[in-house]
Design a protein around this nucleic acid. Structure first.
Lengths: 332, 332
DNA sequence: TATATTAATGGAAATATTTTCAATAAAACC
DNA sequence: GGTTTTATTGAAAATATTTCCATTAATATA
């Protein structure tokens, strides 16, 4: 009643296990008629190779680890959820499997020490640098997703360029007092977006005013808090939010102050989160290509697994301005 | 430079691999001083057991599969994201690992055929019954999470009871024309919630009016659509939404019709999603204990892995009414 | 002191697969 | 027809671990 092995197939087919292995794997030659017979018997018995035995001799697991910081996790940002499912689908296409793990500290997850994965996707920019370094030293193929550090392969979003575009859009619409808010600046992506905002002001000969930058706190409340504190000390005509949840929650704060969107304050978000179409008014935002990021990261990782000695590649994906109603469309 | 093996440790310690294995695993006796010596050497060499070799001989992987339907996935419902991270944390506490996979059709995932997992968590009620049946027949330990069918262990939410409570709350507040909306009724949980609503009406001697039930479509737009169509044919004073995203999006539809919440229409959601505190007004909802569900499911599954021959257990977790402002608090 | 008991250890088998090497059989060539 | 080449196959080694069984050494008992 237990799972059929090569041996069982060999016995039935009256050949050796070596031949069966060759027939099924396609490596090495085997007579066409016996190959057919073996394939048929394997099918009949519902044979599937035992992963443990195979990975013992082959020294690979056909598993890829998906590591994410416990803080960041999958909620409330659906952001990484989308990446996770896209990664899994893409891996599956290549007959690979996904080990999911969150890391809470700097310790190497057991996944790695115990040889459970052939490579790793390190997702998000909250993973400790020491961990990344430790993995690199182990010689395990690693690709950073939505993050980048020198010396390690990465696939990430052009945050700076995106925020530049978003800010430039507001400037184009005539805004001169533009604010920037984030849940936290404790995060590389958000700092890069701040930098893009700054560069856009500079490129248009506008001053950077620190009073127009506000930070809230990590989590769903962040945008509300940031916007509220900002409104107490300044009165911008537009605001760039570090991401869409922040923007959505900032919109509530704006409204709570008795101001209208976009008439009094225009808002632009970042990420093109599913929620962006459902804010009141719908949110103009920078689209981030999450599944594209996933597909490219998987492709790169599988390539590194096959062929480890390669110079690091850094793949930056541009964003796209999606115009909705939160800035007052230039078309109306 | 490759990973140290038992053999390497044995050589250094001047003992056999059998002794090293015993010393490290703690099974079988070994002299205390040599055990210390072996432990020290293993530590020095940074030894970690090779998972493939171990799982080959032990016939277990210390892996648990987390299966979810591709449709349902992790987004836009952060719901399953929270369960996923909670499950992973709990598994890690027990030195188990998580294989994440989405299923698109009825085929047995390779995970299972190739012996990559010791057991499975089947999450959500969108997985095809034929798949569940197929797994059961393979004799693999399985626990359903947020779903239940006869004959298979399960941990799930008391949807019927929760919707009963939610509806009863509205009745207590004096409402007599209470509607029910869902993205779709193509989903067991949502049908159970409808059933709870129905039972509550019945228990209070109120008629069930099909005109007060509306379905939208799967996805973020669902609630808006359902509420809009409902408002075209009826004018309830309160509405029970099948989940919080539906409720949030229904609130936009209500406002779009020029009606106020809760003065014209009271709204109650379900799930206590993170977004519930951020709607305008904050949403009264039924709290669902996601991480509790995760912890119980993991515990049950690990128990089944250790001891497979047990009658199926069905663990139902009650919900809790969280009163915010979307129904008009009874306290004000 | 001789015998019985207990503790500690090593050898070897077992797990399921892949791959190398050698052997055999068949075909091709001179 | 004998020799060389080629195709097909099987035996065996290798992968890293656990565990059974036997052996040795040490201790306790008579």
């Amino acid at each position: 009643m237990s799972r059929p092995t090569l041996k069982a197939i060999a016995k039935r087919a009256g050949v050796s296990v070596a031949t069966v292995s060759r027939a099924l794997s396609g490596r090495g030659r085997v007579d066409e008629t016996t190959r057919q017979r073996i394939l048929r018997i394997a099918e009949e018995l519902g044979y599937a190779p035992d992963m443990a035995a195979r990975s013992l001799v082959l020294r690979r697991t056909e598993n890829v680890g998906f590591l994410i910081h416990a803080l960041q996790s999958l909620s409330p940002h659906t952001f990484y959820g989308e990446i996770l499912t896209a990664v899994e689908r893409e891996l599956r296409r290549h007959r690979y499997h996904l080990q999911f793990a969150t890391v809470e500290d700097e310790a190497l997850p057991a996944l790695i020490k115990e040889n459970r994965v052939d490579g790793l996707l390190l997702v998000g920019c909250d993973l400790p640098a020491s961990l990344i370094q430790g993995l690199k030293e182990r010689g395990l193929p690693v690709v950073l997703v939505d993050n980048h550090v020198p010396g390690v392969d990465s696939v990430f979003t052009d945050n700076t360029g995106g925020a530049f575009q978003a800010t430039a859009h507001l400037i184009r619409l005539g805004h001169r007092r533009i604010a920037f808010i984030a849940e936290t600046l404790d995060n590389l992506s958000f700092r890069e977006r701040l930098e893009g905002y700054r560069q856009a002001l500079e490129a248009h000969g506008m001053p950077f005013d620190p009073a127009l930058v506000a930070e809230g706190e990590r989590g769903f409340e962040g945008g509300f808090l940031a916007m509220s504190t900002l409104l107490q000390r300044a009165r911008p005509t537009a605001v760039v939010a570090a991401n869409d949840p922040t923007a959505a929650s900032a919109m509530r704060a704006i409204r709570a102050h008795g101001l209208r969107i976009p008439e009094d304050i225009a808002v632009v978000g970042f990420d093109d989160d599913p929620l962006a179409v459902h804010t009141e008014p719908p949110l103009t935002t920078m689209r981030v290509f999450r599944s594209k990021m996933a597909v490219l990261a998987v492709a790169r990782l599988l390539d590194l697994i096959k062929n480890p000695e390669q110079p690091a590649l850094h793949i930056r994906i541009e964003t796209q301005l999606i115009i909705r109603q939160s800035c007052g469309s230039p078309l109306t």
